[in-house]
């Protein structure tokens, strides 16, 4: 099975975007994906600031999830372009939705900043996995600022999907390939095999 995975995904130079709803299992899937992509050094970049009980709960949960998976952790809430990561061969960024909120808080150039940050990673490491959220279908019309945020996240997701080799949507823990030369069976096995 591993050999088949290697053939499908390749072991190097993969940029994979993982999207999904809240509590859809996308983090666990993305972590397992990183283990399959590489046996080398892995860096987990956490963009969520530990303010409030909710954030702490989420951060604790994610720490437990990846505890035994051998990631180094870097907490970086904005300006990803500053990160030096050449010692690693895989970066997992969790997640785009909190990064965008943080960036929008400090600059009007948030989209440019974020894409530059991602390009910076791509130049430094062979494997890049980015987690982003699907926040677009709750049917609620929000006030202007929140709508601007939703639109910006949609645009960033589109840009990332265009740059990515593989795009996967996770629905209740099940990966669905939206883009890339892989298939259902391979992407699915990653989730249940690790």
């Amino acid at each position: 099975m591993m050999q088949k995975l290697k053939n499908m995904y390749g072991l190097n130079n993969k940029f994979i975007l993982v999207i999904g709803a809240s509590a859809s299992g996308k983090s666990e899937y993305a972590e397992n994906l990183c283990l399959h992509l590489s046996k080398g050094n892995k860096l987990y970049i956490a963009t969520m600031e530990p303010y409030g009980d909710d954030a702490k709960f989420r951060i604790d949960r994610h720490r437990k999830l990846r505890k035994t998976k051998g990631f180094d952790t870097l907490e970086k809430y904005t300006n990803l372009g500053e990160v030096k990561a050449t010692a690693y061969d895989t970066i997992l960024l969790e997640c785009m939705s909190t990064l965008l909120a943080n960036e929008m808080f400090i600059t009007n150039e948030y989209k440019k900043n974020i894409i530059q940050g991602i390009d910076n990673f791509k130049m430094q490491v062979p494997n890049l996995v980015i987690i982003s959220n699907n926040v677009f279908t709750d049917g609620v019309k929000y006030e202007q600022q929140t709508e601007a945020y939703i639109k910006a996240l949609a645009e960033i997701n589109i840009t990332l999907a265009q740059k990515a080799d593989i795009v996967i949507e996770v629905i209740c823990g099940i990966p669905i390939v939206l883009k890339g030369e892989t298939n259902y069976e391979e992407s699915y096995n990653i989730f249940f095999d690790v």
């Binding site: 999904g20 709803a21 809240s22 509590a23 859809s24 909710d54 699907n134 926040v135 677009f136 279908t137 709750d138 049917g139 609620v140 929000y142 929140t146 945020y149 939703i150 629905i171 209740c172």
Partner: peptide, 12 residues
């Protein structure tokens, strides 16, 4: 129902 595809609600 799938209920997670939106903005994080304010209400805990």
């Amino acid at each position: 129902d799938e209920v997670g595809c939106g903005i994080v609600p304010i209400e805990k």
